[in-house]
C-alpha cells in the first residue's frame, strides 16, 4: 500500500511532474537526438574549425571540426548513466552500511565503521589512479564502481548516527515484537525514515559524479578521448569559454538542466515520502 500511496503522491506533486518530464526529454534528446542531427559524433568537418552555431552546425564546431551537437549528446549519454548509477550505488551503499552498523551495533558496527574509516583516510584519488590502468580496456562501468566506492563514507556515518536514535523508537521496537526479521525492519522502518537525507545526498551525488568524472578524465582515467563525456567537454570548453562560448555553454547548460530535473524529482520524492508535507 505504501508504494501505491507514494507513487500517487509523487505524480500529484507539481515539482516532481516537471522534473520527470524534463528528465524524460533530456534522455530522449541524448539517445534520439543524434539521429536527427546531420553529423555523426565521429565526423570531422575540416572546413569549419571553431565556427559559431549556425544552420549547418547547430551548436557550432570544436577545434578539430567536431560537430558540437553530436559530440555533446554523445557525452550526455555517458554522463546520464554515470551520474545516475554512481548516485544510486553510493547512496544505496551508504544507507545499507550505515543503517546495518547502527541497528546491529556490537561487532557488526565495529567492523563496518572500521572499514568506513579506512576508506576515509585512504586518498581515493591515488587508489583510483593505481587501479584504473589495470582496468584499461575493461568496461567503463568499472569506472562507475570506482567512483561510487569512494563517495559514500561520510553519508554512511551520518546514516549510522541517525539510525542509532531511530533504533530506540517504539515503532521499531513494535516491529521487533511482531517477529519481523531485523534486516526487514531496517529496510521497512529505518531507511524510509532517513529518506529525506538520502534523497538530498543522491541528488548531490549525481552532479558530483558527473563533475568528478571530468576531473579524473583530465588526468587520464575514466572516459578517454576520442570518447567524450559532459565532464570532459565542460573541462575543455571552459578554457575558451569567453572566446568560443558555444564550446562551453551547451554542455554546461545540459548539465545544469540534468541536475535541475533530478533535483526536482528528488524534492518531489521527498515530499511524497514525507507525510508531513501537505502535497
Amino acid at each position: 500500500m505504501r508504494s501505491k500511496v507514494v507513487l500517487r503522491r509523487l505524480f500529484r506533486n507539481k515539482q516532481a511532474r516537471y522534473g520527470i518530464s524534463a528528465l524524460v526529454l533530456l534522455i530522449l534528446l541524448a539517445y534520439v537526438g543524434p539521429f536527427i542531427g546531420p553529423y555523426d559524433w565521429t565526423d570531422k568537418d575540416f572546413l569549419a574549425f571553431m565556427s559559431a552555431p549556425g544552420s549547418d552546425h547547430w551548436w557550432g564546431t570544436g577545434a578539430i571540426g567536431q560537430d558540437m551537437y553530436a559530440v555533446t549528446l554523445r557525452g550526455m549519454q555517458k554522463s546520464i548513466v554515470i551520474g545516475l548509477l554512481v548516485a544510486l550505488i553510493a547512496t544505496g551503499l551508504a544507507a545499507i552500511v550505515g543503517s546495518f552498523a547502527g541497528y546491529f551495533g556490537g561487532w557488526v558496527d565495529k567492523v563496518l565503521m572500521w572499514g568506513v574509516d579506512l576508506l576515509l583516510v585512504l586518498p581515493s584519488f591515488l587508489i583510483i589512479a593505481i587501479i584504473s590502468p589495470r582496468l584499461k580496456g575493461g568496461s567503463w562501468l568499472w569506472f562507475v564502481v570506482l567512483l561510487a566506492a569512494f563517495s559514500w563514507m561520510i553519508t554512511s556515518r551520518v546514516v549510522r548516527s541517525m539510525t542509532l536514535s531511530l533504533r530506540e523508537r517504539e515503532y521499531v521496537l513494535a516491529a521487533a515484537y511482531m517477529g519481523i526479521p531485523r534486516w526487514k525492519i531496517i529496510f521497512r522502518h529505518i531507511v524510509p525514515n532517513l529518506s529525506s537525507l538520502l534523497i538530498i545526498d543522491a541528488t548531490l551525488n549525481v552532479s558530483l559524479a558527473i563533475i568528478g568524472e571530468a576531473a579524473l578524465s583530465f588526468f587520464g582515467f575514466g572516459v578517454q578521448p576520442p570518447d567524450v563525456s559532459l565532464g570532459t567537454l565542460i573541462a575543455e570548453g571552459s578554457r575558451n569559454a569567453t572566446g568560443y562560448p558555444w564550446l562551453f555553454v551547451f554542455p554546461a547548460g545540459l548539465l545544469v538542466l540534468l541536475v535541475l530535473s533530478i533535483n526536482l524529482i528528488g524534492d518531489g520524492l521527498r515530499d511524497a515520502l514525507d507525510p508531513g508535507s501537505n502535497s
Binding site: 505504501r2 521496537l173 513494535a174 522502518h189 525514515n193 514525507d274 507525510p275
Partner: peptide, 13 residues
Amino acid sequence: FQDPMAALDPRMP
C-alpha cells in the same frame, strides 16, 4: 505502547 506518536512509523500509511 504509551506514546501513540512514537509507536507508529510516521512514514507508513
